[in-house]
Design a protein around this nucleic acid. Structure first.
Lengths: 263, 263
DNA sequence: ATGATTGTTCCATTATTTGGAACCTAGTTT
DNA sequence: AAACTAGGTTCCAAATAATGGAACAATCAT
């Protein structure tokens, strides 16, 4: 009765349904009670109750005494392990440090996942904001420096897939939302080798980014230098561009050696 | 045929089995290929293959072109969200900062989960080690400062459960492994209100910790000040103890207000 | 007390997982 | 090159777990 959905639905298989519920609860900005989840997921009461119970039993969610579902600690433990053992991040780390040493500004490492950039690492001198505020966070690819860099490296078919769907939000006055303009922007990025974020995602925040891709065409990522507009001019970013590109190149050069013949 | 296992087995339900496989791959120190996972989980080939496929489809694992399973990015995204929205951590954060301001040494916040402490947050001045090396990491409760503090606040039955099983590793010459000695130590912690880690988990690392518990007896945590033995004497730690206890008290005082009537 | 809302349990029906075996594919040896 | 081997993938009847409607219990507001 629902066989016509080939799009990336979350509800594939028992695990998929469980993950969809987990994500609903975990990514919700307000803590949810049973009825809240019920309203969002629109599943039968019995079904949802059992799914939530399983998630709690597995430590992926916690149920507080006052019947509020909150993310469980097992997620943190798993994520910490996967971060620590992520070869790409380990390979890139010294290059982030070096780039930070040259520029003095915040350096980010991000990976393209679907239409989002997931931040894998960052280096900043004196963190004014609280510590790993960024790691693991997701931002839309089409309006961030790393995102535009990664997208521009994508083969045409994959790029189409990543841009499908008309929901491109305008975060700032500079956000590029029109499809033709975006495609032109990617063309520019491809020829220049670097992408700029001219306050397109957050007002007052600029960045330069360079694409990183593996040989097999499996994954696409990027490295960037980010700074506040009042301190970092567009010209300054352009001056840093070669160093960002060089860092990306150096990381790519090390990739096959580490990611290839793994054992 | 296997109905006699009431202990916390990982294999309960489809989700439990999937999580067991995910954890096997994610917590393994070397990247695993299909056959490696097969050898560890001892499941039929067909079954395991489908489970792994589902995990990959859900973004919890990635399968590299050379057939190596690695942790997926979705874990990071979920963990980042749960960290950012963890009310306990948010409440505690300013108190960690203050304690760090008083002592100048590294301050940790950790929660008891089973027989492990999961580190939720930390504050340190100039991170010599790489950034959030600690957050999300798990350490055994019986030989860490926060762990001993949290365990000592446990009701007897729960404490028994947390100490069951004879596998208490001796990490350093100072690790307390004998059960009677441990119980005596907890008694001391209860009367004094603070726990000391006298290089019991890592050689050269000392800490003072105070327990944090909620009113309902639902969860148990702790806050600690940690330092290298060459710089921080046992006497210095004892001098800091009151401030650690005070920080724990202050956090507990704020807990019900925030965690209670949540909406 | 009474009614309304929220959360939990039950169980026949239905869909998914299971696991043995056959089947590919790539790399190695005779 | 052919035969062998090991790693990886697909198939399908049988076993198992998930589904979801409805009854039940516990809270909360009136």
């Amino acid at each position: 009765m629902e066989t016509e959905r080939d799009t990336d639905e979350g509800g594939t298989g028992t695990l998929g349904k469980a993950m969809a519920v987990l994500e609903t609860v975990t990514l919700a900005e307000r803590p949810m009670r049973f009825t809240d989840v019920l309203a969002v997921t629109r599943q039968p009461r019995g079904t949802l109750h059992r799914q939530l119970s399983h998630l709690v039993r597995e430590g992926l969610l916690d149920l507080t005494p006052d019947h509020v579902y909150v993310p469980g600690l097992r997620l943190l433990k798993l994520a910490a392990a996967s971060w620590a053992r992520n070869d790409f991040r380990v390979v890139a780390a010294p290059h982030l440090e070096r780039l930070h040493g040259h520029t003095g500004e915040t350096v980010h490492l991000g990976v393209l996942r679907g239409r989002e950039i997931i931040y894998l690492d960052k280096v900043e001198s004196r963190q004014a904001v609280r510590m790993n505020s960024q790691i693991g966070n997701a931002s839309p690819a089409y309006c961030t420096g790393i995102g535009k860099a990664a997208l521009s490296a994508l083969p045409p078919a994959a790029l189409d897939a990543a841009l499908r769907g008309p929901e491109r939000r305008r975060y700032t006055p500079n956000t590029i939302t029109a499809l033709p303009a975006l495609l032109a922007e990617f063309e520019t990025v491809r020829t220049e080798g670097v992408a700029f974020d001219r306050e397109e995602h957050e007002p007052g925040i600029r960045c330069v980014a360079a694409p990183i891709r593996d040989v097999e065409g499996t994954f696409f990522a990027g490295i960037s230098v980010t700074g506040p507009a009042y301190r970092v001019s567009q010209e300054q970013l352009a001056l840093w561009a070669p160093q960002v590109v060089e860092a990306a190149r150096a990381i790519m050069a090390e990739l096959p050696a580490r990611l290839g013949p793994q054992r």
